[in-house]
Design a protein around this nucleic acid. Structure first.
Length: 595
RNA sequence: GGGGGCGUAGUUCAGUUGGUUAGAACGUCGCCCUGUCACGGCGAAGGUCGCGGGUUCGAGUCCCGUCGCUCCCGCCA
């Protein structure tokens, strides 16, 4: 008999009745009847009920074992009588009559319970993550994560991709998020950086002649956390393809993603390939977001014309100053009480808007509401037709400068959808967002900057850069969005040094700047680089969607908390002076807080 | 850096208009119980009400400050 187990805790069935078996695992629950004791022993694979009565030699050992004690129990597999079968457990038709028991590891009194549905603060869960991870939901989430990654690997291999690892200690990148830095012992005063993404390396692999590369790549960014953004580090399905157009990239990765979501989506419908493509401009207009949740059926419309020169002075004056009006329909809301509209108005104020104008279309399209009387029948008709509403619907308005109005109308769209319960949650709805602008004007400095990845190829290439207003140039830059979550950004890259110099020149960088910052990659492109492009869907976010978890930390084994601290390992931590000396580092700390 | 929410037993929470000894559940410990599977019954221990200050005859409760956790904004090429 094996030292620890002949079966896992999920394996035994009535077929095994009469056999001697040995199982090892954690004490999940105990039911103590005085002279009869039930112990549920748990491992990754399941739970098995073990039983002993007070005449048994092992009774004392089992009786003394606290929950989460690790036991090895040997005994006879016995079928349960009809009245004692437990249909909730796969092993519920048998039990193990304990003949021998060994404590493999004693458990102290627990700070949090593993069995049961009790909810615990995240602080508690992360401090005792090893206990938290024993719980059923977390086991499921992480097993799902493992299976998703395995499936992605298989699908990528089948699509002809090869997997490589790229450096973790690399150079700081001047664009993008803050880097995590690692001091060099050998080179005083110099630092490595952890990669924000293997961006340049994957482009160099293309230049090295590999046709299709992928990697489940760790990425490090020193940015503040969000529910869908773990601080510090996360994983991407990083991939890149040579000699491809944007369509080739879409056609290659769409079946991978659709396949993974169909495989693990538990029957929830998934957008069929090809995924719809929405231009960035359209997304901002119709959804008020560059990551629209297509499960939300509402569409935003521009109704500036209906308010231009109208008697509703507030909007009319703003329009003269360049503002636009965006409208969000609220189907079948005309019967909502006045308080419903007032509540939404308050909500708008809390979210930084002046308020939320609305018109209610009653029976026969009779318009009601505070601003309805200021709008002529023609204007009201224009609004109803543009927005696509009829009797019984209402329409909400956001009036501001275009960018602000677009963003706020997106918030309103989400809010109205929530209020009216219009979101179809049991779906995965994908889309590509395409035609991102290449450049944008920095609101504070007035400078023209890259709006996304500086390595993206401008649409129209060199000609566009030399002849077009930079702010009108689009890039071969795209995002993939699922249920309002941005899964990844990608692009057809700029593999031409001449076009790169020009693009950077427009963003205010000299040739020397570009060489200093991106010398490695730029140099490589001077020796023959294939046209290439790719993307990098976020693994954690994919698993989060599939697990139906609202928080990305639910699908990460050992995440840091919002303050970027690992409560279990106690990181970050101070270092002894000799270690700092070795790294040529002196501390200049902020003054201590007054107490 | 800014805003919202939360902070009471080991844990999750309740705690009325400011008023006697701050409660419940789970967990822990003890006793009883031979068919439970969220076993049950009886009992016990367990509290700096995050911390500091203030108002008051009296503060878990009101005020000010501060710390911690979390969600959001900024940030995230």
């Amino acid at each position: 008999m094996h030292r620890y187990r002949t079966h896992t805790c999920g394996a035994l069935r009535p077929d095994h009745a009469g056999q001697d078996a040995r199982i090892s695992g954690w004490v999940h629950r105990k039911r103590d009847h005085g002279h009869l004791l039930f112990v549920d022993l748990r491992d990754q694979h399941g739970v098995t009920q073990c039983v002993a009565d007070s005449s048994s030699a092992v009774f004392k050992i089992l009786d003394a074992a606290r929950p989460e004690t690790v036991l090895c129990i040997t005994g006879k597999v016995v079928p349960r009588s009809a009245e004692t079968v437990n249909d909730k457990l796969p092993t519920g038709r048998i039990e193990l009559v304990a003949k021998d028991a060994e404590v493999l590891s004693e458990a102290a009194v627990l700070p949090m319970q593993v069995a049961g549905e009790q909810e615990y603060s995240e602080e508690m869960r992360l401090t005792y993550r090893f206990l938290d991870l024993r719980r059923e939901k977390m086991q499921q989430n992480l097993l799902l994560r493992s299976a998703v990654i395995a499936s992605i690997r298989r699908r990528m291999w089948e699509a002809g991709f090869v997997e490589f690892q790229t450096p973790i200690l690399t150079a700081s990148s001047p664009e993008g998020a803050r880097d995590f830095l690692v001091p060099s012992r050998i080179h005083p005063g110099k630092f490595y950086a952890l990669p924000q993404a293997p961006q340049q390396f994957k482009q160099l692999l293309m230049t090295s002649g590999f046709d299709r590369y992928f990697q489940i790549a760790p990425c490090f960014r020193d940015e503040d956390s969000r529910a869908d953004r773990s601080p510090g580090e996360f994983y991407q399905l990083d991939f890149e393809m040579a000699f491809v157009t944007q369509d080739d990239v879409f056609n290659t990765i769409t079946p991978v993603l659709a396949g993974v979501f169909e495989e693990f989506g538990k029957g929830r419908p998934v957008t069929k390939a090809p995924f719809p493509r929405i231009t960035y401009a359209d997304a901002m207009l119709k959804y008020g977001s560059d990551k629209p949740d297509l499960r939300n059926p509402l569409l935003v419309s521009d109704v500036t014309k209906a308010f231009e020169g109208s008697d509703f002075n507030l909007f009319a004056k703003n329009i003269q100053k360049g503002a636009v009006v965006r409208a969000v329909p609220a189907p079948k809301s005309a019967e909502q009480p006045r308080s419903w509209f007032d509540k939404l108005n308050d909500w708008a104020r809390e979210n930084g808007a002046g308020g939320l104008g609305y018109v209610i279309f009653g029976e026969g399209m009779a318009a009601k509401g505070p601003i309805a009387s200021k709008l002529s029948p023609e204007r009201l008709k224009m609004i109803a037709e543009t927005v696509g509403v009829g009797p019984g619907d209402s329409v909400f308005f956001a009036c501001d400068q275009e960018e602000v109005a677009a963003k706020f109308s997106g918030l309103v769209r989400t809010k109205i959808c929530d209020e009216l319960g219009l979101l179809d949650k049991e779906k995965f709805m994908f889309c590509w967002i395409v035609d991102f602008p290449m450049f944008e004007r920095n609101k504070d400095t007035g400078q023209i900057e890259f709006s996304h990845n500086p390595f993206s190829m401008p649409q129209g290439g060199m000609e566009a850069l030399t002849t077009q207003d930079p702010l009108t140039i689009k890039a071969f830059q795209y995002d993939i969005v699922c249920n309002g979550v941005e899964l990844s950004s990608g692009a057809i890259r700029n593999h031409r040094p001449d076009i790169m110099y020009k693009a950077f020149e427009i963003a205010g960088y000299t040739q020397a700047d570009v060489e200093a910052r991106f010398g490695g990659m730029l140099n490589a492109f001077k020796f023959g680089a294939p046209p290439h492009g790719g993307s990098a869907p976020g693994i954690d976010r994919i698993v989060m969607l599939l697990a139906d978890e609202p928080n990305i930390r639910e699908v990460i084994c050992f995440p840091m908390n919002q303050q970027a601290m690992d409560l279990m390992m106690d990181a970050p931590a101070e270092l002894p002076p000799e270690k700092l000396r070795e790294l040529h580092i002196g501390l200049r700390l902020p003054p201590p807080r007054k107490d």
